[in-house]
Design a protein around this nucleic acid. Structure first.
Lengths: 197, 197
DNA sequence: CCTGCATCAATATTATTTATTGACTCACAT
DNA sequence: ATGTGAGTCAATAAATAATATTGATGCAGG
């Protein structure tokens, strides 16, 4: 079951068979159906999830009760509320499944323990955090500097697959746009494209 | 928030204001949206839920992966997997919301504690169990002895409200019928009725 | 050899989700 | 002051998913 998970790890670190069987003792597998929560606002995030099938999102709802999407996590990605996970404070974000999905879960104790006994796993996480930090910073700067159209095109180039899979209003939410605005941006782009051909 | 809950208790037992404020310390409130699980097969049932709004169901999925509905719980009812709740073993049933719902939750420790310090609550539960047992036994005998049509009519008489609220295929599942069969039974009944008028 | 129901497959109906459009407002950069 | 980019609100359209019905057929038991 957690093959996909091991493949992912193996891309950045080297895992022995012994390591894998240790992992198997500490991880669990969970299925979520579409719209099901993995984590709800007000709960404490007790595990990080690796998505082996499907796609999840994390989001928060603002004062005006709009959903603001923080992250999409398709197969091969991790998702959690890291803040709540490490501090044990209540989470203020929600994580749910956009499609029926399958996860590999690692809870707090398991995670700590695995990092201790498998140094390569520690290293893996290190790399993950660094990468995530860089990506987030880039996203933030894009948010501040780009126009609606530019944001959309950038996303289209980087994650064309995600745009295909998730409803458009979620893309809008991710980009900090209103669905109507995104709809109009797309229309304009299509018109342009037809002009070219 | 838990007014509805106190009203329910007050129908069978007498609660002082002091009792109520003790309760308030030990219960929690939770919202579920349609199709969201309260409990999934393989988890341990950590709380009993009082439904203050909406409607839930508990069901198990059989070898042929049909859902078999055990119970519906509309407002004013309790629902849980009592077996798992008392033994701490993994549940083999699922509980989810048929409509967006609001619950009052009492977890294991709270439940035990409340029964200890509020004898009336202990008594309430006693009555609940007895009533539930009787009702279940009646249901079982109906299952064995009645025809599809009779089962449906009986349900219609006892819980007309539930039949209005939940999809027909769930009624079928509850009665141990196939959706097609129930559809045909209903058609026959409607024809009969028209004949009468 | 009926009767009562299950099964399978197709289709119809209804509800829910998602997307688009129009008319309008506001901020702000020119 | 004015045009542009995006938000807001309300209505509608389109797409998808959930639910219900129907017909054909099979099978077990009185």
């Amino acid at each position: 079951m957690p093959d996909h998970f091991f493949n992912k790890l193996s891309k950045s670190i080297t895992l022995t068979e012994a390591d894998k069987s240790i992992f198997r003792q500490y991880i669990s597998v969970k299925k979520l159906r579409k719209r099901q929560y993995l984590l709800q606002e007000g709960e404490v995030c007790k595990s990080v999830a690796f998505v082996s099938k499907g796609i999840l999102r994390s989001y928060l709802v603002d004062e005006k009760s709009n959903e603001r999407i923080i992250q999409f996590a398709p197969e091969g990605w991790f998702i959690s509320d890291l803040y709540s996970f490490v501090t044990n404070e209540y989470s203020n974000l929600n994580i749910d499944a956009i499609e029926d999905s399958e996860l590999v879960l690692i809870n707090q104790e398991a995670h700590a323990h695995l990092e201790n006994i498998i140094p390569e796993f520690f290293k893996f996480n290190c790399l993950q955090y660094r990468g995530a930090y860089i990506a987030l910073q880039k996203r933030l700067t894009n948010m501040f500097t780009l126009s609606a159209e530019e944001k959309y095109i950038k996303l289209l180039n980087i994650y064309p697959d995600i745009i295909q899979r998730v409803p458009q209003h979620m893309i809008a939410s991710y980009l900090g746009l209103k669905p109507e605005t995104l709809s109009r941006v797309r229309k304009k782009l299509i018109v342009k494209k037809i002009g070219h051909s």
